[in-house]
Design a binder for these strands. Sequence first.
DNA 1: AGGTTTCATCAACTCTAGTTGATTTATGCT
DNA 2: AGCATAAATCAACTAGAGTTGATGAAACCT
Lengths: 91, 91
Amino acid sequence: MLKALAEPIRLQLIEVLGNGERCVCELTSELGMAQSKLSFHLRVLKEAGLLNAREEGRWVYYSLKPEALQELRTWLGDLASRCTVPASPCC
Amino acid sequence: MLKALAEPIRLQLIEVLGNGERCVCELTSELGMAQSKLSFHLRVLKEAGLLNAREEGRWVYYSLKPEALQELRTWLGDLASRCTVPASPCC
DNA sequence: AGGTTTCATCAACTCTAGTTGATTTATGCT
DNA sequence: AGCATAAATCAACTAGAGTTGATGAAACCT
């Protein structure tokens, strides 16, 4: 899931979809990129569980899955609270 | 920063450091991996601003930077709250 | 049916990121 | 000084992820 997020183009996608659902053709023109390229990255994000795809006729609308983002958020929160425990000198 | 997080070995490191500061030699033996490899990944994490390095004699202790984790958390929170706005039909 | 549009998929290529083993630097010990 | 240990760095190699252009499948229109 993190691997899916960690790529410039996919981050762009995430930011755009952060403003709500978009269809592929909107994304293609907004980001000005080859359709196969876009499709590839959408696939990666979808398979990582970060995106919903809603088909409507010949259009496909993608949107972010808030649950997935929430899951990551929780993990980061746990880490941040645990990581400050005092060190035991090594060796 | 996300790119730094999104790698299996670095995730392992993050999880271990999630339990508090560790020195490199501890990490080497705990994770059983080549020292140069470990050093490479620590560098990536450090340059991404995710880690603190504290030198003590010939040892170096690494720890997570809670602020960095918090920053990501905030970003995810914003996305999660924005991304549910209704769609405007395209084309 | 025939043509068009939207999107997904594929194979070939490119490039970036990670691995490996050797070397270097710095600290500490006897 | 001489040696050992901890960690960083480097160059050569490898592998995986991303790109590109072409092709394919499905929905819609006239």
